[in-house]
């Protein structure tokens, strides 16, 4: 309950501040309307949470195969479910930004758009497999194996994708840190951004924890009732 309240207050702070403070972008450097850059406060934390969820589900898949403990399967699938949700959010916010600044919702020559598209396909494939396996124990094992294969193939993609989209990327890369690794943001911007990063992570952890507890109660009742 206290977490719910804290997340609510912090999220309200981020939402309000994101719109009442000046845009994080210097108007001199913009491609489109300068206000569009406010989406950065939401888009980057969403992408970060999607990545975090993806890594978590890989970790839990490996743990499941090691231990055969169904609790890890529940954790892996919950992380994936939330990862899918945040990946969709990040795609939508990214697309809006792309439309306003570059004039198109989608651009195949943009490496990050291709990457997130593949991430969405991976999630889709994972859930397609799960729904096609009726036995829970079998479902847990096979989807864990698939997760690991996907993770390894994603590593190869990280190496190969920059080769085909080498120089031409319009996606802002220096919005958080510049090339030398120094923070590029001013005081207010950095306060809002890092609060947003924390609150999105907290939101994810809160929903994640709630889903796990719900699943566990459900499993327990199944075992007791019948």
């Amino acid at each position: 309950m206290i977490w719910k309240l804290l997340i609510f207050l912090a999220m309200s702070f981020v939402v309000v501040m994101a719109f009442v403070t000046p845009s994080p972008m210097n108007p001199a450097n913009t491609l489109g309307p300068v206000d569009v850059y406010r989406i950065f406060y939401f888009h980057v934390p969403q992408s970060w949470v999607a990545t975090l969820a993806f890594l978590m589900s890989m970790f839990f898949s490996i743990r499941f195969l090691q231990t055969r403990n169904m609790a890890f399967d529940i954790k892996a699938v919950t992380a994936n479910r939330l990862g899918l949700m945040f990946a969709i959010l990040a795609t939508v916010t990214g697309s809006i930004f792309a439309k306003m600044t570059w004039g198109e919702f989608w651009n195949w020559s943009e490496i990050r758009e291709v990457s997130i598209f593949i991430l969405l396909i991976i999630y889709g494939a994972y859930f397609a497999l799960r729904s096609a396996l009726p036995d829970p124990d079998q479902r847990a094992t096979l989807s864990a194996v698939l997760s690991i294969i996907f993770a390894v193939s994603a590593v190869f993609l990280i190496f190969i994708l920059p080769r085909i989209y080498p120089s031409f990327s319009q996606h802002p890369t220096d919005s958080v840190v510049d090339k030398s690794g120094k923070l590029t943001m001013g005081g207010t911007v950095s306060l809002i951004f890092f609060t947003s990063l924390a609150v999105f992570t907290a939101l994810f952890v809160w929903i994640y924890d709630l889903s796990i507890r719900l699943q566990n109660i459900y499993e327990k009742r199944l075992l007791e009732d019948k």
Partner: peptide, 26 residues
């Protein structure tokens, strides 16, 4: 993996595609 599933043919392509992406590009 697919041989255990209730739908097989279509699922094979769906699961293989993300795995084969780096191979196809290279």
């Amino acid at each position: 993996i697919v041989s255990k599933a209730t739908i097989k043919g279509a699922l094979f392509t769906v699961l293989s595609f993300p795995v084969l992406m780096p191979l196809l590009i290279a």
